[in-house]
Design a protein around this nucleic acid. Structure first.
Lengths: 239, 239
DNA sequence: TGAATTTTTATTGTATACAATATGTATTTT
DNA sequence: AAAATACATATTGTATACAATAAAAATTCA
């Protein structure tokens, strides 16, 4: 019966980490979470163990759980690893995707479009996350999936700023991403690995550009009195 | 104090899985393990959760933990993924390895040599596992490491037959592997990524040939009465 | 006999109480 | 007043008892 309760617990905490509702590095209070979810500490702690092993949390002995930190030292490795893993996953997905999975993917893309249209930040982040997660499932590679999932945790968290942005250029980029999703679905459905890899590469480049601005904000104008030409509202407090 | 106890529990169970002392698919009895390790079910279950999340076990709700199965359906994906991940890890290791880590790697290689000389199957398997694990640490890529670890679980388990073999050819191959380790250490120490990748590729090919015989044993002689030319004692009961 | 149902047993899941550890506060000492 | 120590509080870790679920055995009914 209460397998549902534990799953809810896992999913909810996971979402809070991914949407930055729980800030990187922040501590989790077992007692408070127990009250909130109406469970005792035993099952809660088992879930925390799982979340930690999956990379969402970090557990230190006798000092409890904290949300996984996103430090700059791993960024390099993120940018090195992501394109390779994403490309491999897309290739395998295009080779192995079943019709049922393609249907799932299309459904998730509809959710994403709706969230984009309504400008619902959390829904955008989560449906985009789920979209790429489904592609991961399509790849059917238990050995590649763990790395994809680790990448996605930080990718989704970094994307928050992107989704939250009320900037014109960013909105256009979100639309581009949405269009790339459609193309990717088509390539996967038609079993065209090469095309899928290429679109994935473009999709990654779009993200990468965004992240570069995020990590390294636009330089200040030379003349501090002249108005800033392209007013970008990037807040990089999270990193 | 008892953080040690839990770590021992984790390490011991992990080793039993890796050395096939616990057969793939076999069930774990919580009560028996509790008695053996002198802990109650609460901490034991937390460890089982961790082991499951790391790919050593599979936990089904209301039905307990079993050792991760090694079915043929994932073999394809294993052979597809392994060379790419191993190569990437080696490249990064050669780029980033610190002197301290290189020293560790050399120490582990000494252990491996000793185990090979003494023909200690478990020690061979575990020190070889640890050897490649250290290279994984050298790579310093939290995003690539999870896939490497998943691959290593099954790689080490499959290697058991290899190490157990009393066959002449197999022994020569183990010596080759040992020599490749030395070359790999040198490439890493001298920060030569290209060389490290190349040796890794050769090292993988050696494994792959072994696995092919393992999964698909030598064909029977055409004339069933003539003696078998190369008596290979490959027992592929585990797969 | 044999299929279906109930009862029993074993195993897994959860709550709670208690122990161990870490952290914060007060007190003592110089 | 500053440092050091002792004490108090909060948090984490573990054991145990009990509840829920699954599996096995026994019983019933056709």
């Amino acid at each position: 019966m209460q397998a549902t309760k534990k799953q809810t617990l896992y999913d909810t905490l996971r979402q809070r980490v991914l949407t930055l509702e729980l800030a990187p590095g922040s501590a989790l209070d077992e007692t408070i979470l127990c009250e909130e979810f109406g469970v005792s500490r035993t099952p809660l702690r088992e879930i925390l163990q799982r979340l930690a092993a999956h990379g969402y949390l970090e557990i230190t002995a006798n000092r409890g759980a904290t949300v996984s930190s996103m430090n700059l030292s791993v960024m390099r490795s993120f940018f090195q690893t992501a394109p390779m893993i994403y490309a491999s996953i897309s290739r395998l997905a295009a080779e192995n995707a079943t019709p049922v999975q393609t249907t799932q993917l299309k459904a998730e893309q509809r959710q994403f479009r709706i969230a984009v249209k309504r400008n619902e930040v959390i829904d955008m982040a989560m449906s985009n996350h789920r979209f790429h997660e489904i592609i991961g499932e399509m790849a059917a590679s238990p050995y590649l999936l763990p790395s994809l999932q680790r990448l996605q945790i930080d990718h989704t968290r970094m994307s928050q700023t992107f989704y939250k942005s009320r900037n014109r250029t960013d909105h256009e980029r979100i639309d581009s991403a949405c269009e790339q999703h459609e193309q990717l679905i088509e390539a996967i459905e038609k079993h065209q690995p090469a095309t899928a890899v290429d679109i994935t590469r473009q999709h990654w480049e779009l993200s990468r550009h965004q992240f570069e601005r995020y990590v390294q904000p636009d330089p200040l104008p030379i003349d501090p009195l002249s108005p800033i030409q392209a007013p970008t509202q990037v807040d990089n407090h999270a990193l």
